[in-house]
């Protein structure tokens, strides 16, 4: 398999091209803006909460295949999770793509997100993969400042 195929897995290419839950914010959702100044990627993440559970997550914006796919798959994964579970996932996801932590436990909890493991070979792309997650967290805290990867 060519090296770039390890990064650009079919699932990632698919979500990059046809992002899921890709839409403007709906009435009553919390929204935050995220920006990666390095490459100009800009996204918005919208969250609807219901008694501590993530009822719905969606996103909008423009970015590279990695950041778009990461956002798309994040929205699918987080739906129905508690905030604690979401926080744990982000930590595992971050460990996975930076090559830190314990791969066994991290992979176990990540499910489909494991396809992003290839990112660890591309340190400059880590920020692409985490932009949506940072923005998600900003949406929860109602931050006025755009989330930034810097």
């Amino acid at each position: 398999m060519s090296e770039f195929r390890e990064l650009y897995q079919e699932v990632i290419l698919d979500h990059g091209k046809n992002p899921r839950n890709f839409r403007e914010a709906a009435e009553g959702e919390r929204t935050a803006y995220g920006h990666n100044p390095l490459c100009g990627d800009k996204i918005q993440v919208h969250v609807a909460m219901d008694h501590g559970v993530i009822e719905n997550v969606a996103f909008h914006g423009q970015g590279c295949a990695i950041s778009t796919a990461s956002a798309s798959m994040m929205t699918q994964t987080l739906k129905g999770k508690t905030l604690e579970a979401a926080e744990t996932m982000f930590q595992s996801f971050h460990n996975l793509i930076t090559g830190t932590g314990d791969p066994e436990t991290d992979l176990a909890g990540l499910g489909k997100l494991a396809v992003f493991a290839g990112v660890r070979e591309f340190p400059v792309r880590v920020k692409c993969a985490t932009l949506a997650w940072h923005t998600f967290k900003a949406a929860l805290t109602h931050s006025e400042e755009p989330a930034s990867t810097e």
Partner: peptide, 23 residues
């Protein structure tokens, strides 16, 4: 068309080709 400059830059880089992708 269809490929973000960053993704183009990464794939070219793997072939040893250094170009700039950004603003």
């Amino acid at each position: 068309e269809g490929a973000h400059p960053h993704d183009v830059g990464t794939i070219l880089d793997l072939d040893g080709i250094a170009v700039r992708a950004g603003h």
